[in-house]
């Protein structure tokens, strides 16, 4: 199948809760998982392909994913190998703004980016969580993520003592 044709045909995807979304081939190919599926449909081509069912992504999350892939459809995407060495020297302000969302939405987005194999989106969204952790005290992290403080005084003292023996590699 020739996926490099200049026109950008319509493709439909269906979320786990049965909502159908229309997007374009170029956008949807940012997902490594869907790219693999499309490469294997063979005869009939994309135009005659039915809606692609995505059992693991709900409609709210899929809507967010589609917004992201449509915005980035013309950008060159790094592979998951390339992204391992990526340093965060510059983040597109559009992406920065896009990732301003509730934690539960963000977790769903991360899970979807992982399932759909969109390396850049997975990198950006996991980085977002990491940035929330950086430069915050354990207490601040607990309140931000609503994590229960289950330490006994002896336990936390032991961990703090142990950490004094540790340093960054």
């Amino acid at each position: 199948m020739d996926i490099d044709r200049p026109s950008d045909p319509q493709v439909s995807v269906v979320s786990s809760d049965g909502t159908m979304f229309h997007t374009t081939l170029k956008s949807i190919l940012l997902s490594g998982t869907i790219k693999d599926m499309i490469e294997h449909i063979g005869e009939g081509g994309v135009e005659n392909m039915g809606a692609i069912p995505l059992q693991n992504v709900d409609s709210k999350t899929l809507e967010i994913v589609i917004k992201w892939i449509e915005h980035h459809k013309d950008n060159i995407q790094p592979t998951s190998e390339e992204i391992k060495d990526k340093t965060a020297d510059f983040i597109d302000p559009w992406d920065e703004n896009f990732l301003e969302m509730d934690l539960d939405k963000l977790y769903n987005l991360i899970t979807a980016a992982n399932y759909l194999n969109i390396p850049q989106l997975l990198w950006l969204s996991t980085r977002k969580i990491a940035m929330l952790i950086k430069n915050r005290t354990p207490q601040e992290i607990r309140s931000l993520f609503n994590i229960e403080d289950d330490w006994t005084p002896q336990e936390i003292e032991a961990v703090q003592k142990e950490n004094q023996w540790c340093e960054e590699k």
Partner: peptide, 30 residues
Amino acid sequence: NFLEHLPFEIVEIIFQHLNGRDVLNLSEVN
């Protein structure tokens, strides 16, 4: 809590963005 809501392999990806200091700090969360 992302540790409860995300699978192990994804939390590992989050950790790729953190340095040793951040990780030690997280160890004191609970």
